[in-house]
Design a protein around this nucleic acid. Structure first.
Lengths: 228, 228
DNA sequence: TAAGATATGATAGTAATACTATTATATTTG
DNA sequence: CAAATATAATAGTATTACTATCATATCTTA
């Protein structure tokens, strides 16, 4: 099982990179340190020049892996959703009871991320923080429709659809399964952001977890409502 | 009443501007055309230089009103939330029944924005679209904590708290009133964004309104649940 | 092991951005 | 009419986001 995990490779849209960063040492260091740097100084202040200095490499070499920092962000975010999707499928696959399965899915999506040693050059905890603080910027652009057509958001969309299918499976009459699913995915990021920067705008804190909030939210929307 | 509305001025944090844009013709043209331009080319591509050319004025003159385009975005977003808060208070003020009041509040927040002729230099429909597409960028920054302390997000926070108080008023035992409130506010923007760019990730469309979705979501979370 | 291919590094250069500073010219007000 | 204020014009700077070219190091394989 451990061995199986170690041979897994998260597949992201090949258009996000010019050269697969997993294929070389330099590529892995680019990914590793871009996560550290974006976490430290934010996506706006992050540049390939600064990254080059940090990893003792050259700006021009980084450009051989990624067209620009936007594409790098698309790579990182796709990787993250691919990784989370793997956790989701792995954890819910064997659960036959629809409610239990959805409950587990919500748990996987909403619980705090912990380090996964299977991918040594990627710090999933920091990457999750980048997703919380920067993910919206990957799609709140004028190019979103083109990039959507080119498949840059496929994994995320698959995630939303997976959850919405689980919702439909429990209550076929519920009129908003996809909206509820996208609300949970996006809302989770938002509640974590609020907990960090606007604690007065969320009930989520050390006592109350996003998992509790969203579990309550989802199961009270669905019928037959046996939750409570 | 019409007259009353016309004398209303939406108060935004004075730190967002160097000189009040409402105090002069040039100021109003800056605001008016910044809304048009950001809507057209997006916040990233928008610059003071381009705006200057468009309004037949000079880059340096615009800098006398706003420190930079980030502050201008803070001005526009604060104005928008101030305007929406006014709609909210005006519409819910006289309703004494807690459920009816919350229902009306959700309606105000979630329904499509229509032009308000009280503010002739501001196109609220386009501004709403800017909020949908750009609002997150005003707080997803490394400076968010400082700017929060300086009061740049006060109006938005007040909105979230108003709704959460209405929720608490209906169900004092509901454990997540603030999270539910912030989910409705943020989620509304997100559902409109999805409807525009990722229609497969939302149920909201011409047949199903965000109002229906969020009304269902909120009232099913609360007890006594007499909704359905 | 030499020849060629490929990866990386170093340097230079460009257009645009996000400003700041200074000076000039209108316009308004007292 | 003079002084104050608002706006415009011009120039200049550091940084960003690249592109292009050439040099060098390393790896492959015949």
């Amino acid at each position: 099982m451990k061995h199986l995990l170690q041979t897994i490779k998260i597949e992201v849209n090949k258009k996000t990179y010019l050269k697969d960063p997993e294929s070389s040492d330099l590529g892995k260091r680019i990914v590793e340190h871009s996560i550290l740097m974006i976490h430290e100084i934010g996506f706006e202040a992050f540049t390939f020049k600064k990254l080059g200095i940090r990893i003792g490499s050259n700006e021009s070499s980084i450009y051989r892996y990624f067209e620009n920092k936007h594409k790098l962000l698309l790579y990182l975010t796709s990787w993250y959703w691919g990784w989370l999707e793997y956790q989701l499928v792995f954890a819910t696959n064997s659960i036959s009871d629809p409610k239990e399965r959805l409950q587990k899915a919500i748990e996987i999506i909403t619980k705090p991320v912990v380090l996964d040693t299977s991918f040594s050059h990627i710090n999933e905890v920091l990457l999750n923080n980048i997703i919380i603080n920067e993910y919206s910027k990957s799609y709140l652009t004028k190019e979103v429709d083109t990039e959507n057509k080119e498949g840059y958001f496929e994994i995320y969309k698959r995630m939303v659809l997976r959850i919405s299918e689980m919702i439909e499976h429990i209550d076929q009459d519920y009129p908003f399964p996809v909206s509820l699913s996208s609300t949970v995915l996006e809302g989770t990021l938002h509640q974590y952001f609020l907990a960090q920067h606007f604690p007065s705008l969320t009930d989520c804190n050390k006592q109350i977890s996003p998992t509790e909030y969203f579990t309550h939210l989802v199961f009270n929307s669905l019928k037959p409502n046996t939750n409570g």
